[in-house]
Design a protein around this nucleic acid. Structure first.
Lengths: 343, 343
DNA sequence: ATACCAATTGACAGCGCTGTCAATTGGTAT
DNA sequence: ATACCAATTGACAGCGCTGTCAATTGGTAT
């Protein structure tokens, strides 16, 4: 039925080992031999069996993406980028959504890694930002790549993608300040995500640099969810000194904030500017469309996966760390502060 | 490092075959022996190696989800349901997003199936609704389960989940009619999805049964996308005889329609009612929230996967086909037709 | 106590590859 | 023509399981 390495070897009149060499792109095979084998591979439509490769070799051709994130757009983008790298390099991907707070989470991942002989893990927040978890994964004899928020990568020789949320957040805040806003509310995302504090610190830094006082009343702590945006915006708008702009930690929160503004009959951006973060489809589909920061998640994911695969193969990497800074995208949810507003 | 079946056998003082029997839940093992083995499994934290099982056995423990759908919420829900069934039954899931219209698509899936020794495929539209594709998959020696739109399952002894979009659509249309609407626009989703025509036929049937004339001008053909909703609604509203309600083939289209209405300063639902289909998060996050039909995608997916796994294991199934009918969910985007409106 | 037979257990081959190491090949220097 | 050695190729074991079939066990009827 399905052709095996034996069939190819027979057809090409070489040993199975030589076929193995050809499909693994090893160097010491004469060109003429290589051609014979490739012809046989093609004629028989041969696909090496990954289970056998995983079992026989010291290498494995499976990696897994472990995540705990309710943001469908984010996950789909990540999967897309990871799969793109996997396909090019002949790896298969297992996805493993799970609960980061479950107390047997290490056990759970460990089981999966053993069962499926996973060679490497792609970790996104919050997993990538849980040091003990990362430590335990390393002891499992599994390579990892982390996508995390911040500027300085952990100094542990593991590949990393650092997303400079602080700087991107600074730019967004500066954009609001340039529009004349002085009372800018901030809805913080989930505390288990480092991006929340990084984005908050970019915001406070920008305020400081512009000599604007930071008011704790304008900072609301929430989750990365639509509902959090609704509640956060409601409570900010109820403040004695209302903000003229609201910085939402991501687009979903921003969509919630827009919803709340609509509930309270507040015109966006005339009476209130709202910004998001992520440039997810949300930001193009709300009314008005959202000013946000563009984070190329699929690129980040593909890049991370390439680093991981190189790491799995013990290839030496020039750059074990890659940096990204999301870019400001101005749409219709931000405008100049109206001069006749209360201050 | 990782415990193997040999380690367990040694520790339990039995043969590896007996260990194999215990972990496969075979019947003819004495209770005392079973207990010894299970104790050893636990003590060594043993996890059977899936690659070896796939290779050694005639069965495989991998299934794949093949899809071509830009709807992130739908995909995430499906994955969740599939994974839930996989986890319970010890299967691993590969995801395979791809382009259904690529001309080498059969080749592509075939490669994946061979490489990863996939035992079964979960197919959603449009793949599940492409008869030649399904036929070719069967020749690949891979089992399938299809989730498709319609009432009557294909008569080919393959497990199927049928979603009765016609009936659900009928109910939604009746809801609009009950609210007094007589001019109801319809934005059709992508033609490659049978759900589009099924939902359309439910709509026309409901109109007929209520003696309402069907106007081709009120039916716009599009895709399952936000942009299609924007364009569709714009063109419907530009009609000489404006609709007082718009039935959108899914929530994303409906969100686009809402966007268009907002652009044109049309109050929802006072001047225009809009409905969606799917009950995705969209429908709770738009303004106003959407009346829609609830489709429990994760349940459908889990159910489908259970059918598939039973099929893969050659277990006889009582019911090879399961039927679902989405339920009407009334929210704030629909209202009584205003009596002073133009007709 | 003995025969019998179903229930239980184990020996061994083999799934399709890769790793190790030994054997062969063929080009180069003499 | 010959020796030599790097380049190329192949033989064989083994990865960790399951399938097949044969061997052993132990409970029941006599």
């Amino acid at each position: 039925m399905k052709a095996t390495i034996n069939d190819v070897a027979k057809q090409a009149e070489v040993s199975i080992k030589t076929v193995s060499r050809v499909i693994n792109n090893e160097v010491s095979v004469r060109q003429a031999t290589r051609d014979k084998v490739l012809a046989a591979v093609k004629a028989l439509d041969y696909q090496p069996n990954l289970a056998a490769r995983n079992l026989a070799g010291t290498k494995s051709y499976s990696i897994a993406y472990v995540y705990d994130n309710p943001n469908a757009y984010y996950i789909i983008d990540m999967q897309k980028g990871i799969l793109s790298a996997c396909k090019k390099q002949g790896y298969e991907l297992l996805i493993h959504p799970c609960n980061a707070k479950a107390d047997n989470i290490t056990q759970e991942i460990s089981t999966m890694v053993k069962q499926s002989r996973v060679a490497g893990l792609v970790l996104t927040p919050p997993f990538s930002e849980m040091p003990e978890f990362v430590q335990q994964m390393k002891q499992l004899d599994v390579k990892i790549v982390r996508i995390m928020s911040g500027d300085v990568a952990p100094d542990d020789l593991t590949p990393c993608i650092m997303v400079n949320d602080h700087q991107a957040s600074y730019k967004i805040t500066q954009h609001l300040i340039d529009l004349g806003h002085r009372h800018i509310g901030f809805i913080v995302g989930g505390a288990e995500h480092k991006s929340s504090s990084e984005r908050l610190s970019g915001y406070t830094q920008a305020l400081k640099d512009n000599d604007i006082a930071i008011s704790e009343n304008l900072i609301v702590h929430g989750e990365y969810s639509f509902e959090s945006g609704v509640h956060g915006a409601k409570s900010l708008i109820a403040e004695e000194i209302k903000p003229t702009a609201i910085f939402s930690c991501n687009d979903e929160i921003a969509a919630g904030a827009l919803f709340a503004a609509r509930l309270m009959n507040i015109a966006i951006p005339e009476e209130l500017s709202i910004v998001g973060f992520e440039n997810s489809p949300f930001s193009r589909q709300t009314w008005p469309t959202l000013t946000t920061a563009d984070q190329p998640n699929d690129q980040i994911a593909e890049n991370a996966t390439n680093l991981l695969i190189a790491h799995v193969r013990n290839q030496s990497l020039k750059n074990i760390v890659t940096h990204y800074t999301p870019e400001l995208v101005v749409r219709n949810s931000t405008g100049r502060v109206s001069t006749d507003k209360n201050i």
